[in-house]
């Protein structure tokens, strides 16, 4: 790890001003990506601004028909929240399946969403549930937020404060873990609300998390696993590595979608 300045502000405004003072500052939320990268000397921010003591970022609330989760809420807290488990059990289950207990007790939803790792679980939930990302400056729809591997709509100095999830009628997340890292090699989040069906896929594409239009169309016509049978998944821009080539991942998208639909239907 290289030397860096460390700051611990207590308000979002102070965070913003700290970001302005350093050329290459990084926000520290749960640190589950940033700290290992720094330890391996692959990242060398000039300053680390710790969000751990910023007020107002750690609540889980029900607001109208939405579940609103503060950016600093840990995965373990989402997984065990009565509110989330009742309203969107698929989201609680997703959070409970991220990493291991150590990761879940440090990692945060805001950190995961801002990092937009192509294998992260949360981005699939945000896209498939039609969530809204709330920042210190504006509100961004999930469809506009994720812009490719490790890339988001966030501007310099923009800080995620919360994420708002509309409550779906049915939803489920099923992932196929990479055998080594156990990150999602393919993760599929399926949701249904009225006649709308959304299918978001993480882990598979070189462009990061995405919505699978063909699968959505098939499921809008009929929301069951059989509807997905034979629906082609375009793997032309999928990741190919030693664990899975693009065509294998494309197959997994189809299979995980079927399983997610079955799960969403409570079967």
């Amino acid at each position: 790890m290289y030397a860096f300045a460390y700051q611990r502000p207590t308000t979002v405004r102070q965070v913003q001003s700290a970001l302005g003072k350093h050329d290459d500052a990084k926000l520290l939320a749960g640190g589950q990506t940033l700290l290992p990268t720094m330890k391996q000397r692959l990242a060398s921010p000039s300053a680390v601004i710790d969000l751990g003591h910023v007020a107002g970022l750690s609540a889980i609330e029900k607001k109208g028909r939405n579940i609103v989760i503060g950016a600093m809420v840990r995965h373990a807290d989402v997984a065990t929240s009565d509110l989330v488990r009742e309203a969107i059990p698929a989201l609680a289950a997703l959070a409970g399946g991220i990493g291991d207990p150590a990761v879940r007790n440090r990692g945060t939803i805001g950190g995961s969403v801002a990092n937009n790792d192509p294998s992260a679980d949360y981005p699939a939930a945000l896209l498939a549930l039609g969530a809204t990302i709330v920042t210190n400056k504006r509100k961004i729809a999930a469809d506009d937020f994720f812009q490719g591997m490790f890339t988001t709509a966030l501007d310099d100095g923009e800080i995620i404060t919360k994420v708002s999830f509309p409550v779906p009628a049915k939803a489920a997340y099923v992932k196929f873990p990479n055998p080594a890292s156990r990150y999602a090699m393919v993760g599929v989040f399926v949701s249904k609300k009225g006649s709308d069906v959304k299918v978001a896929v993480t882990g598979a594409s070189n462009e990061g998390v995405f919505r699978a239009a063909g699968l959505e169309a098939a499921l809008k016509a009929k929301f069951n696993a059989k509807a997905v049978e034979g629906v082609a998944v375009d793997g032309s821009n999928f990741i190919s590595d030693i664990h899975g080539t693009a065509d294998y991942r494309a197959n997994l998208v189809n299979v995980m979608t079927k399983r997610a639909v079955t799960k969403a239907l409570g079967k």
């Binding site: 055998p179 080594a180 990150y183 030693i242």
Partner: peptide
């Protein structure tokens, strides 16, 4: 699960638990 893998340039692709499966 396990298998060490070098690429054609001799870089060890499986140089961490992210890729080497225990």
């Amino acid at each position: 699960l396990e298998g060490a893998h070098y690429d054609a340039n001799g870089q060890l692709v499986t140089a961490s638990y992210m890729d080497y499966c225990m």
